[in-house]
């Protein structure tokens, strides 16, 4: 029997815009990625000094997750092991790998080295919220809604997870794009069914 799960929230960050559940919640045109991410962090009045030490991929994913969960996620419903994170992108941690490679020509930066893996963004989100559920970071050329639906549904339908943050977080130089989804078993007032079609519809909504 196919179990029905639900997309209970979404967050998109791209083109100097932030959308929560399809509604534009922040815009700062003209700024470079790192400045834009710091502006958004301050706009949403987030308090997490470690944010400033993160590389751009972790900043992007961490910020998207904060906006995704705020007002949409009832942490009390779940044990730490119940919530997992499944992310994907096209460029892994290449943006930071290149920057680290440059520092390594003189004195290598330990602070940059620790971000030379894409799944560190999952660690940053997990530390922030004390999530201990299953996690994975996949590399694919494009956002693959079918794969995400299949993989996350398998985790939830087999009771490995009760909720899952999933989606896409990609950075390379000035190009960036994040779409995160919160997937839960229970419906919420504005949720839609967790299907490949709905993932694509939300992802492409503000994709130009």
């Amino acid at each position: 029997m196919k179990t029905e799960n639900h997309i209970t929230a979404s967050c998109i960050i791209r083109n100097n815009l932030v959308y929560k559940n399809g509604i534009k919640v922040f815009e700062e045109s003209g700024s470079a990625l790192s400045d834009f991410l710091v502006s958004a962090y301050r706009h949403f009045d987030l308090q997490y000094p470690k944010f400033f030490k993160m590389d751009n991929l972790s900043k992007l994913g961490w910020l998207a997750n904060e906006i995704l969960l705020t007002g949409s996620f009832d942490k009390e419903k779940y044990k730490p092991e119940d919530t997992g994170i499944v992310l994907s992108n096209a460029n892994a941690s290449l943006d930071t790998d290149i920057k680290y490679y440059e520092t390594a020509k003189t004195i290598a930066s330990p602070a940059q080295f620790v971000y030379t893996l894409p799944n560190i963004v999952i660690g940053e989100i997990s530390i922030r919220h004390k999530f201990k559920g299953e996690n994975a970071f996949f590399i694919s050329e494009e956002f693959d809604a079918g794969f995400i639906e299949q993989y996350v549904s398998n985790l939830i339908n087999n009771n490995i997870l009760q909720s899952c943050i999933c989606g896409w977080a990609d950075v390379l130089d000035s190009a960036y794009n994040a779409t995160l989804f919160l997937i839960e078993k229970d419906k919420s007032p504005n949720s839609v069914n967790f299907t490949k079609e709905n993932l694509n519809k939300i992802h492409q909504l503000q994709n130009g």
């Binding site: 003189t106 930066s109 330990p110 602070a111 620790v114």
Partner: peptide
């Protein structure tokens, strides 16, 4: 990690 960065600061 900050401790390592402080060592780099002393060197640089």
């Amino acid at each position: 990690i900050d401790a390592l960065e402080l060592i780099v600061l002393l060197q640089q």
